[in-house]
C-alpha cells in the first residue's frame, strides 16, 4: 500500500468532470478507429443494420455504446468496497481475454485431447527444470553477493567476472555454450542438466546483484550490534542480515522466478521436451498451432499466478515486524 493520507477525498470516478472527461476521451479515441468491420459491428447489427453499410452512423453508434458501457462500469464499480472492485475488474478483464480467444475458433476437443500430455510431460519438465534452477541460482546468488561485497580481491574478481559474463551473454548463447561447448573439452553433458546449468548460472548472475543490493540496504549498525555481541560472520549473515534483507530481496526475486519459468523454454533448442517445445510440435501435425500455443500460454500463466501467491504470502510473513 502507498502511504495512506488521512485527509478524506471524494471518490474520483464519481466526480462529474472526471466522468465527462473520460467519456470524451474514450469517445474521441474509439471514433478514430473504424470498428464497423470488427465483431463489435456484428453485435450491433440489430441497431445499425448491416455494419459494412452503416457508415458514419454505425461508427458513431458503436463508439457511443463503448464509451457509455465503460463509463457506467467505472461509476458502478466506484460504489463497491475494495475487494469487490478487485474481483469485478479481474473477472471483466479475464472475460475480455476469453472473448478475444474465442475469435480464434479454437478446437476445444483437440485441446482437451492433448492437454494431459502437455501437462504431464511439458509442464512437469518446465516446472522441475525451473525449480532446480531456482534453488541453485539462489545458492549461487548468496555466494556471489558475499563475494562481491568482500574485500578479498580474488573473490571479488571471480564474482564480478561471473555476473558481467552471464548477464552480458544472451541466455540462448549460454545454453549452446554449455551443451555444445563443454563436449569440446571432453565433458559430455545431457540436455536437461545442460539446461539447468545454463538457467542457474544466468539467473544466479542476476540474483547476485539483487542479493547484493538487499544486503547493502541493511544499516551498518546492525552489523556492529551483531558483531559487538560476539556473533561471527556466518551467524550475523544468516540470522541478522539476510532475514532483514529478504523483504527487500523477495519482490525482485519473485520477478526472476517468473521470468525464469518462461525462459526455461529456451532449453527446448537442445531438445528438452518442456512445455513450449511440446506446444509447438503437437500442434504442427494438424496445423492447430494456436490451440497448443494458447494452452501453453495459459499453463504458464497459471503457474505464474501460483508463484505470485507464494510471493505475497512470504511478503506478508516478513511484514510482521513492521506493524506498529
Amino acid at each position: 500500500m502507498l502511504y495512506p493520507d488521512t485527509v478524506e477525498s471524494d471518490v474520483l470516478v464519481h466526480k462529474p468532470w472526471f466522468i465527462t472527461g473520460l467519456f470524451a476521451v474514450v469517445f474521441a479515441v474509439f471514433l478514430a478507429f473504424d470498428l464497423t468491420g470488427t465483431s463489435l459491428g456484428d453485435l450491433m447489427r440489430p441497431v445499425i443494420g448491416d455494419p459494412a453499410e452503416s457508415g458514419v452512423y454505425g461508427r458513431f453508434a458503436i463508439t457511443f455504446v463503448i464509451a457509455v458501457t465503460l463509463c457506467l462500469n467505472i461509476v458502478l464499480i466506484g460504489f463497491a468496497p475494495l475487494k469487490v472492485q478487485v474481483a469485478v475488474v479481474w473477472s471483466e478483464l479475464l472475460l475480455l481475454f476469453l472473448a478475444f480467444f474465442t475469435t480464434f475458433n479454437l478446437s476445444l476437443p483437440f485441446m482437451a485431447e492433448k492437454l494431459p500430455f502437455l501437462i504431464t510431460q511439458g509442464l512437469f519438465t518446465t516446472i522441475y527444470v525451473s525449480a532446480i534452477s531456482i534453488v541453485i541460482a539462489s545458492a549461487i546468488a548468496i555466494l556471489g553477493a558475499v563475494a562481491k561485497l568482500s574485500t578479498n580481491g580474488f573473490a571479488y574478481a571471480i564474482a564480478s567476472f561471473y555476473t558481467s559474463f552471464f548477464r552480458g551473454l544472451p541466455l540462448l548463447m549460454q545454453v549452446y555454450l554449455i551443451y555444445l561447448g563443454l563436449p569440446q573439452i571432453g565433458f559430455v553433458i545431457d540436455a536437461v542438466p545442460a539446461g539447468i546449468l545454463a538457467l542457474s548460472l544466468c539467473y544466479g548472475a542476476y540474483m547476485t546483484e539483487i542479493f547484493r543490493s538487499g544486503i547493502q540496504s541493511i544499516d551498518r549498525g546492525q552489523w556492529e550490534a551483531s558483531r559487538s555481541i560476539g556473533f561471527g560472520f556466518g551467524v550475523t549473515m544468516r540470522k541478522i542480515i539476510l532475514p532483514q534483507a529478504l523483504p527487500v530481496i523477495i519482490p525482485p526475486t519473485g520477478n526472476q522466478f517468473i521470468s525464469m519459468l518462461k525462459d526455461s523454454s529456451l532449453v527446448s533448442v537442445i531438445g528438452v521436451w518442456e512445455l513450449m517445445f511440446l506446444a509447438r510440435t503437437l500442434g504442427q501435425k494438424s496445423f492447430q498451432h494456436m490451440e497448443m500455443l494458447i494452452s501453453a500460454a495459459m499453463l504458464y500463466w497459471i503457474v505464474s499466478i501460483g508463484l505470485e501467491l507464494i510471493q505475497s504470502r512470504i511478503e506478508r510473513h516478513y511484514a510482521r515486524s513492521k506493524v506498529r
Binding site: 544499516d219 549498525g221 550490534a225 558483531r227 559487538s228 555481541i229 532475514p243 532483514q244 516478513y318 515486524s321
Partner: peptide, 27 residues
C-alpha cells in the same frame, strides 16, 4: 573479547526482525 564486553549504541541497533525477548535471548 566481545562476549565479555557489552556495547550500547547511540541508535540502539536492536534487531528489528526479532521480538524484544528474542533480541535478548539470541546472544
Amino acid at each position: 573479547v566481545r562476549k565479555n564486553v557489552g556495547m550500547v549504541f547511540q541508535h540502539f541497533n536492536l534487531f528489528p526482525h526479532m521480538t524484544v525477548l528474542m533480541n535478548c535471548m539470541v546472544g
